[in-house]
């Protein structure tokens, strides 16, 4: 793999991490309306998966969607403006953190309903098939969503129609505040097997492994060989939502969190780039600094963006006919 590709993966992961840490800081300062769910620790899944997609391919995302959007190419400035509820946000302030959409990049939307994007991704696959395009849709969902019935419906439909959809479960070990294993029977990736859907797990903290496994699934889908279910094993280093300690007591040990911090996907990849690819710490530090600067600029952009006019609340319910 070329150094350029490796550095592009690194840069995207760092961009997500810095964006999310800034979001945490802004939330603590009370600057963001509403609640936010950050993706810290799971960056390798989104970046590895989206690195094999074309701009014209589609993704559906989740309530924890900032990472997916950045990985698919979203601009952090209008993203940040959206989190601030401003007129220059991706959705002009109508969606917020959980609903960032950029259809020009194939991002069919973060989604506030757990499992809500699963049928949508399936429909996007139907569009590719009907129109004879070789597009692929990656459907991001969490381990919590794996217990929604629509996953079964979607896997069945995708299997019988051989839809070009990759169902990518991010098993971050928690469904809100409860360990996933407490409330989930069996292994999630095995749920594709009875449908004849290619099913596998992958180390979700290893960006190159995610890229390889999702890449194979995407190639299969483009060849018309149907869907894949992948379970990426990762960990949510932060809470379910920011500020949660105000209403929920500790539900995991520091030892557990520390053990996953030792497997931080960005630290791991950085070490690999230095030891395996001979990339200097200074080069990587400069990427970090550039991304930090970009996120800082995004905050300035967001805070200087006006709020939408209150009457804009009345717009965008319906598209104008003939328009």
């Amino acid at each position: 793999m070329s150094p350029d590709t490796l550095l592009r993966l690194y840069r995207r992961m760092v961009r997500i991490r810095i964006f999310e840490e800034k979001v945490q800081e802004l939330h603590r300062l009370g600057k963001l309306p509403g609640f936010v769910h950050v993706y810290v620790g799971e960056e390798a899944v989104a970046v590895g998966a989206c690195s094999v997609l074309r701009d014209t391919d589609h993704i559906t995302s989740t309530h924890r969607g900032h990472g997916h959007c950045i990985a698919k190419g979203a601009d952090v400035a209008p993203m940040m403006a959206e989190l601030f509820g401003r007129a220059d946000g991706y959705c002009r302030g109508k969606g917020g953190s959980m609903h960032i959409i950029d259809t020009s990049l194939g991002i069919l939307g973060a989604n506030g309903i757990v499992g809500g994007g699963i049928p949508m991704a399936t429909g996007s696959g139907i569009a590719d098939e009907v129109l004879g395009r070789d597009g692929v849709t990656v459907c991001f969902f969490g381990d919590g969503a794996a217990n929604q019935g629509v996953l079964l419906e979607a896997l069945n439909l995708a299997a019988i129609w051989k839809l070009p959809v990759v169902y990518l479960c991010e098993s971050n070990q928690y469904m809100e505040f409860t360990p996933t294993t407490d409330l989930t029977a069996g292994r999630i990736f095995r749920r594709g097997e009875p449908f004849g859907v290619a099913s596998m797990e992958v180390d979700g903290n290893d960006v190159l492994e995610v890229r390889r496994v999702v890449g194979e699934a995407v190639d299969r889908a483009r060849r018309g060989e149907g869907p894949t279910l992948i379970e990426a094993i990762t960990y949510r280093l932060s809470g379910h939502s920011e500020g949660e300690s105000a209403f929920v007591s500790a539900y995991r040990t520091e030892e557990e969190v520390d053990s996953w911090k030792a497997r931080d996907p960005i630290t791991r990849f950085r070490d690999l780039l230095q030891t395996g690819a001979g990339i200097s710490a200074a080069r990587l530090d400069s990427i970090d600094a550039e991304e930090q600067e970009a996120v800082n600029e995004a905050v300035v952009f967001a805070e200087s963006s006006p709020f939408p006019s209150p009457d804009e609340a009345l717009d965008h319910v319906f598209a104008p006919a003939g328009g």
């Binding site: 049928p119 429909g123 696959g125 569009a127 129109l131 849709t137 629509v150 419906e153 069945n156």
Partner: peptide
Amino acid sequence: SEAAFVGGAVGAAAAGL
């Protein structure tokens, strides 16, 4: 599978159908 095809229509429409 009503949820799958009713929701599928949303994704299909967003993607060009």
